[in-house]
């Protein structure tokens, strides 16, 4: 960051010299001066490990995000085949018990919404496209960016591990509504749900690192002449979605932590006095509705966290392939921002 700032200063000094000392006092929007920014020291991985595994290059991280997301997406896809198989030919496959069906529904939903789409559009396309499209050398915090991916990777690993623990993954439905989620009447109410909550928490932490990177890169590291109102709509979509995500995901994180406490320590954030198999449990005074508030404070914006980057990408693709500029670009930008703002009212 500081390097670039210094570069700009040298550049300004140079340009005022070449223009005969009559440098404009305010930056001219229409005239973009030829940039002569000296080369910067950028991240270069030299060994295989630093180039492809623990890499700080946004493009490689983008590809890593993309591949990991596609892998989880394929798992989610196979789960949906199994569900369809059961619906089309009930009982044809012996292992499709009610428990497994609910587990597959849950894991399919969670994988597709969070681990596939969010990671693909923001982690994958975001990392790959933002620096290229706004003309930045790289993300502003490459090291944090690398950690962001590896947090996501661990989150996926924990999620996948839940398929192999006793009781299997959680079958609570992707909304994870308590009290049902942590009671024995639900498949995977033991280890399965705990791993899901841990995985979600890791995902949110990792995503927050990535999200800060996207926002600050877009706001601070754009190239000369790339004003906000000149950014490609793809970047606008990713930007707005990231703002939504930064506001929405913390609600998911706290609800995951609170539910973990309910499960392990027997706190009663979400647990009222309830009866299980004729016995009154030790919980009392909590509110299942509180969880629904927290969950949907994340869940409603999540729809547009996933949709807005796609809107942007579609706009750019159509305009490029029809060889026309985007009609009503400024209105489109405000529409994207407006959708983002309205989204929080929907909750």
């Amino acid at each position: 960051m500081s390097d670039e700032y210094d570069n700009n200063k040298t550049y300004q000094a140079q340009s005022s010299e070449t223009m005969g000392g009559s440098a404009p006092t305010s930056p001219d929007m229409d005239y973009v001066r030829p940039a002569e920014i000296p080369d910067q020291e950028l991240y270069h991985g030299h060994s295989f490990i630093t180039k492809w595994v623990f890499c700080q290059d946004a493009k490689v991280i983008g590809v890593q995000y993309f591949l990991t997301a596609v892998f989880t997406g394929i798992v989610g896809l196979i789960l949906s085949w199994l569900m369809r198989l059961q619906l089309g030919f009930p009982g044809a496959a012996g292992f499709m018990t009610a428990e497994h069906y609910y587990q597959f529904v849950t894991m399919h939903g969670m994988i597709m919404v969070v681990y596939f789409l969010t990671a693909l559009f923001l982690g994958g396309f975001g990392n790959y496209l933002i620096p290229l499209m706004v003309g930045a050398r790289d993300m502003v915090f490459p090291y944090v960016n690398m950690i962001s991916f590896w947090m996501f990777f661990i989150a996926v690993a924990v999620l996948m591990a839940s398929f192999f623990v006793p009781g299997g993954p959680t079958g609570a439905g992707w909304t994870l509504y308590p009290p049902q989620t942590i009671l024995p009447g639900t498949p995977g109410a033991g280890m399965g749900i705990l791993l899901m909550l841990v995985s979600l928490s890791l995902f949110v932490i990792g995503f927050t690192m990535g999200g800060l990177n996207y926002l600050i890169t877009i706001l601070q590291a754009r190239t000369r002449g790339m004003t906000l109102m000149r950014m490609p709509l793809t970047v606008w979509g990713i930007f707005t979605a990231t703002v939504l995500a930064m506001l929405a995901f913390p609600a998911l994180l706290v609800s995951a932590i609170m539910m973990t406490l309910d499960k392990i320590l027997g706190t009663s954030f979400f647990m009222p006095t309830i009866l299980q198999a004729g016995e009154v449990l030790e919980y009392g005074g909590g509110s299942p509705i509180l969880f629904q508030h927290l969950f949907w404070f994340f869940g409603h914006p999540e729809v547009y966290i996933v949709a807005l980057p796609a809107f942007g990408i579609v706009s750019d693709l159509i305009s490029v392939h029809s060889r026309k500029n985007i009609f009503g670009y400024r209105m489109m930008v405000w529409a994207i921002v407006g959708i983002g703002a309205l989204e929080f009212l929907e909750y």
Binding site: S322, R323, K324, N325, I326, F327, G328, Y329, R330, M331
Partner: peptide
């Protein structure tokens, strides 16, 4: 050749 028409206030208003 494609027509260059970046904006149309009236049409945008109607659509909105």
């Amino acid at each position: 050749k494609a027509e260059y028409k970046p904006e149309d206030k009236r049409l945008e208003k109607i659509l909105t």
